[in-house]
Computed example of a mutant assay.
Amino acid sequence: MSKQDTGCCEPSSEEPLTEEQATEMATVFKALGDPVRLRLLFLIASRPSGEVCVCELTPAFNLSQPTISHHLKLLRQAGLVDSERRGTWVYYRVRPETANRMSALLAGVSGERTPV
C-alpha cells in the first residue's frame, strides 16, 4: 500500500483514550463545566483536613441550600467527591483517584505519555 492509499501519515497502533475512558472523563469535565461546581470542588480540595461540611459551603455562594446540594450531587455522580453523613450534616471530600485520572489525561494531551 502506498502513502497515497493511507493518507499522509501512518495510522497509530495505540489508542490514546478508549471510548469508555472518554465517556467517563467527559462526564467529569461536564460536571466541572459549571463555575459553581468548579468553585465547590476547589473549596473542598483546599481544606487542610481534606473535607468540608455542607454548612460551610452554602454561605460561600449567593445560592440556596437546595441549589448547592444539587451541584454537590452532580459532583458526586461524576466521581469527583465523596460524601459522608454525620448527624444532620454531610461532609464532602475530593476523590483523589478521579483527580489523578484527570491529571494523567491532561498530561497526555500536553505530550507527556501517562496512562489514564
Rank of each mutant, 00 (worst) to 15 (best):
T6L: 01
D34A: 06
E14N: 11
C9S: 11
A22P: 03
P11F: 13
T27F: 15
R37T: 00
P11V: 05
E24V: 08
E19G: 14
E20V: 11
F29L: 13
K30P: 02
V28R: 10
L38S: 04
D34H: 11
G7R: 00
E24D: 12
E14V: 09
T27R: 15
S12L: 12
K30S: 09
L40T: 00
E15V: 13
F29I: 02
C8K: 07
K30V: 02
D5E: 08
L32M: 07
C9W: 05
F29C: 12
Q21S: 13
T18I: 05
P16N: 10
S12D: 08
C8F: 07
D5K: 12
E10L: 07
P11L: 14
E15Q: 12
C8V: 03
T6A: 07
E24W: 15
G33E: 02
P11Q: 10
E19R: 09
K30W: 10
R37S: 00
G7S: 09
M25D: 07
K30R: 13
R37C: 01
L32R: 07
E20M: 10
A22G: 06
Q4S: 10
A22L: 15
E20N: 15
R37F: 01
S12V: 04
G7Q: 01
D34C: 06
S12M: 09
E10H: 11
G33K: 08
L40A: 02
Q21E: 14
L38T: 01
Q21R: 13
T23G: 14
E20F: 08
C8M: 09
L41Q: 01
D5R: 11
F42Y: 06
V36R: 06
Q4C: 00
L17S: 04
A26F: 14
A22H: 14
L32Y: 10
F42S: 02
T18Q: 08
S13W: 06
L40G: 01
E14P: 13
R39Y: 05
F42W: 04
S13C: 09
Q4V: 00
D5M: 07
Q4K: 10
L41D: 00
R39I: 00
P16D: 05
V36S: 05
Q21G: 15
E20S: 14
D34I: 04
G7K: 00
T23L: 14
F42M: 01
E14Q: 14
C9T: 05
E15F: 12
R37H: 02
D5A: 15
P16T: 05
P16G: 07
V28D: 08
L41I: 01
C8N: 08
F42H: 03
P16R: 15
A31D: 03
F29G: 06
V28I: 11
A26N: 14
Q4T: 04
G7F: 01
E14M: 08
E19F: 13
T18S: 15
Q21F: 14
D34P: 05
E20I: 13
A26W: 12
M25K: 14
Q4A: 06
D34N: 12
C8A: 15
P11A: 15
A31Q: 06
R39T: 02
T6C: 03
P11R: 15
E15R: 15
